[in-house]
Design a protein around this nucleic acid. Sequence first.
RNA 1: GGGCCGUUAGCUCAGUUGGCAGAGCACCGCCCUUUUAAGGCGGGUGUCACUGGUUCGAGCCCAGUACGGCUCACCA
Length: 490
Amino acid sequence: MEDHTKIRLEKIEKISELGIECYPYEFDVRDNLSDIKKSYADFTREDLEERKIEVKTAGRIISIRKMGKSAFIHFFDGEEKLQIYIRKDKVDEKVFALFKLLDIADIIGVSGTLFKTQSAELTILISDLTFLSKSLHPLPEKWHGLQDKELRFRQRYLDLIVNESSRKIVKIRSEIIQNIRMFFYEKNYVEVETPMMHSLPGGAAAKPFVTHHNSLNIDLFLRIAPELYLKRLLVGGMSRVFEINRNFRNEGISIMHNPEFTMLEFYELYKDFNYYMSLTEELITMLNEKILGCNEIEFQDKKISMSIPFKRAKYMELISEKSGVPVEDLWDEKKLLKFIEGKFNEDDIPPTFGKMLDLMFDHYVEKHLVEPTFVTYYPKAISPLSKESRLDKRETERFELFIAGMEIANGFSELNDPVEQRKRFESQVKDREKGDDEAQVVDNDFLRALEHGMAPAAGEGIGIDRLVMLYTGAENIKEVILFPTLRPKE
RNA sequence: GGGCCGUUAGCUCAGUUGGCAGAGCACCGCCCUUUUAAGGCGGGUGUCACUGGUUCGAGCCCAGUACGGCUCACCA
């Protein structure tokens, strides 16, 4: 056993011997530290002297400065720090004996009177001390905090205790989600929850996790997207729905990817993708206002203007512009393949036309999309759930929003023709046969729903984790997910 | 999955040419009633990630393994 732990266990014994409960059941916190600071930080020493303001609060000890018969302690309630002062002549003997057995990281409750020290720091002069919980381990180092990323992710609680930047990310994430909910509630959207376990993986191009249900004796897939269920709700006449929930994709882990991630999806009947581009601008503008108070974000040393309207550019034209390949040649699978064969390794040559376009886009375009940009009119081959474009039969009414080189949103006019949808699924199956293991499968149950008639509709998904990265400047998705997926240790 | 890098005390980090394992904070003992990176005196608390190898001798060199970071690929 670690020495620190042994010593602290001995202290628990000694506290017990004083007749003090080491793990009590409750404590009446009358004032939290932020309220105390907010209310009294501006009072002068004389004001506080005169008014003798009593407070009762609790928190975790983060530093102790002992001076024989007195001591200063900083403690922390998850939100704010405050100093407390204990003097031997101002408390019971037992309280002072308890104080001597306290360690950094222990959790205590205190009652006392507010005053200001000679250096004008608001401080509680303790009259009573309640032991609330012992920590058997010391805190990480006091001014470097916890730096080791692996420890920060594995022991997030320590990270939260000592690193304010980590607490701030949690808070901003909560504010973003809360504001998104408000945004949709105010527009009369209904929040729903659809299955996390699907009998067919659908709604996106991705490899699923597989699990098994014992009593049904069937394999189930953790969902890769909620899309096909949300559209069943549109068939059911729910005209405005949204869901904020986890998706699971059995793919690589990187600074942009976690196997489980949070997705917002929303759908509205009688609207098209143009309307949703505007709605997205409205949503992002609202978030900028609420979270940052301005229409600019700072991301990895880059200032990015978020003012609307966002740029719009066609998918094929962007590829053409950055790669130098004429648009009509991009549409010609043979010419495109020839170009790719000349540029990429043999191993990297994609098996399908859609994958070739993806490769071109990712390689030539994506990283350049720093300013918010709607990439529009994705080809049909890579958009099996989107409605055909009114302008060009090869394209769909689909857009993706890119900010800071990250794909943030993906929306489209929803394909609602069941015959066409079946063809698209079948074309996906052909892609799968050619070696695209992320191509979708035919979902007959979903097709039956479409056959009952789905009104025209727009739909969109927004990756919440990446959105939080934008608003917090986090450079790794693990920073915005409290417990990112890591290989277990030991 | 590929490439590069890292892993030394509870934490943050040094460790030279292969020659007794180090510092600061934390911790332990003593002193100290307005300190705040409190201070003073004394104390090193360690499976140098793991397993082998080379060597008189390995934290250091070599091989492998584990975990992580960065990056490329796939993906949102």
